[in-house]
């Protein structure tokens, strides 16, 4: 079947899609956007997290056909091409929250969503919001640091305005 969708603001079309394919497969193997990761394909790790019509979901559990005419934002769409890395991306780098990096794209999409809805989260809020994203390398401490850092920086920016 054919699937047409918008990803990171661009219209995409994929042809000859098998009906059992996931949105994740279409992104990675058909649209050249492998940033969303394929760690478990059962909704238990969050590494494939994307925003679907502005809501974070596991793209491995969205059937490709369900993404027809919908709006998807992936990790590749977080950075503003004009201004470089998004604040959450920079914070993950600065805090040392990236090791192997396989969980990073999903965590970035989840963190970005958290900070949109809750700009100054408590540690418990951060832990709850990221409880669907497994990381095997960092022990999460530096991921917490990164989210705190991103929140603090956006607080400073907001204060300057």
């Amino acid at each position: 079947m054919r699937v047409t969708l918008t990803v990171n603001g661009r219209r995409h079309q994929a042809d000859d899609v098998w009906e059992g394919e996931s949105l994740l497969y279409v992104l990675r193997e058909r649209l050249g956007l492998p940033g969303s990761k394929n760690a478990c394909e059962q909704g238990e790790c969050g590494s494939c997290t994307v925003r679907l019509d502005d809501v974070p979901v596991c793209s491995c559990l969205v059937a490709a056909g369900q993404a027809q005419d919908r709006d998807v934002v992936t990790v590749e769409g977080l950075a503003d091409p004009g201004t470089g890395l998004a604040p959450v991306q920079q914070a993950f780098l600065d805090a040392g929250a990236v090791q192997c990096g396989f969980c990073t794209p999903g965590l970035l999409v989840a963190t970005d969503d958290l900070l949109r809805h809750c700009p100054q989260p408590t540690d418990a809020d951060i832990r709850e919001a990221l409880s669907g994203n497994l990381c095997r390398c960092t022990g999460y401490e530096k991921i917490l640091d990164a989210v705190r850092l991103a929140a603090a920086r956006s607080g400073e920016t907001a204060g300057e305005r």
């Binding site: 909704g43 238990e44 969050g46 979901v57 596991c58 989840a110 409880s131 669907g132 994203n133």
Partner: peptide
């Protein structure tokens, strides 16, 4: 499950 699953 997780926040992502609860969204779907």
């Amino acid at each position: 499950a997780s926040p992502q699953i609860r969204n779907r």
